[in-house]
């Protein structure tokens, strides 16, 4: 019966997903009742204020890229996390009357970035300062997009270059483009193979999960901060599973190995 309905080798994953959802909802419920959760300082996110401030002082624009992933693949969560940061950046640029240029590689992300920036200007009481021509779809070609961004960085003499989302080979092109333009650069991605490039070429870098915590960190919305709590619990569970798995395979305990082979392969 179980095998007819459930995909058996995903039962463990199913259990973990349900557990994460339940713990998240409990944490959010507690947050609604007033419980405050601690979230550690993330230097890269603090640097965003500094970067926008610098651009304001210099009278030069801020460039934001939400990465190059679409919304229909497994890296979509990175794009969503990037959009949360965009909302914060747009509110800052609205507040300080600084130009914000947002470039898009994915057409389906364009209307969302437009809406995020428009809403941010609205919430700061400056809808008249929102310029839709600064929210640009450049090309869905990865390197045409990269070339377009480099052109904008050098022509507009961008003072702050903020890159948050999923990036691939264009990461270093952006970072070097920003370096040559003299921008302060803040980047964040969960694409592990691109992290070395951002770390080498940017002033601040969010690594992996820090990007996903960014929205909660910047908004300080108690419900979102509470949901971050689940990541920590998940990490503890992952560490425990790694230890159990390592011991089980080292000592060759068939019960655990067979269980995982059947329900979590």
């Amino acid at each position: 019966m179980l095998e007819e309905i459930f995909v058996v080798n995903r039962l463990v994953l199913f259990g973990i997903t349900v557990a994460i959802a339940v713990i998240m909802l409990i944490a959010i419920r507690r947050a609604k009742k007033g419980k405050k959760y601690f979230i550690r300082r993330i230097a890269g996110l603090e640097a965003i204020d500094e970067a926008v401030g610098r651009a304001t002082e210099m009278g030069r624009p801020v460039h934001f890229s939400p990465g190059i992933a679409s919304l229909s693949e497994e890296t979509a969560a990175q794009t969503l996390a990037g959009l949360a940061v965009l909302g914060y950046v747009a509110r800052l640029t609205a507040k300080y009357d600084t130009d914000l240029i947002v470039t898009n590689r994915m057409a389906e992300v364009l209307p969302i970035t437009e809406e995020v920036v428009r809403q941010s200007y609205l919430s700061e009481g400056k809808p008249e300062n929102y310029n839709p021509d600064n929210i640009i779809f450049l090309s869905d070609e990865q390197f045409a997009y990269a070339a377009g961004c480099m052109g904008i960085m050098s022509r507009e003499k961008v003072a702050a270059n903020i890159m948050m989302g999923a990036f691939w080979a264009e990461s270093l092109i952006f970072a070097e483009g920003g370096f040559v333009a003299g921008s302060i650069q803040v980047a964040g991605t969960a694409n592990t193979h691109q992290l070395p490039f951002f770390l080498a070429a940017c002033d601040y870098c969010l690594i992996g999960e820090e990007l996903f915590a960014a929205g909660a960190y910047l908004s300080q919305d108690p419900m979102q901060v509470a949901s971050i709590r689940v990541q920590d619990i998940g990490k503890v569970a992952a560490v425990l599973l790694i230890i159990v798995g390592t011991i089980a395979s080292t000592c060759n305990w068939p019960v655990i190995i067979d269980f995982l082979a059947k329900f979590a392969s």
């Binding site: 998240m24 969560a77 969960a190 992996g208």
Partner: peptide, 26 residues
């Protein structure tokens, strides 16, 4: 990093599905 990022992605996805994170429409 992948484990941390995957947990982050799962939580972000759940936040979005449950309507807690609405950054995708402003």
């Amino acid at each position: 990093i992948m484990i941390g990022a995957s947990l982050g992605a799962i939580v972000t996805a759940l936040r979005t599905i449950f309507g807690i994170d609405r950054s995708y429409f402003g």
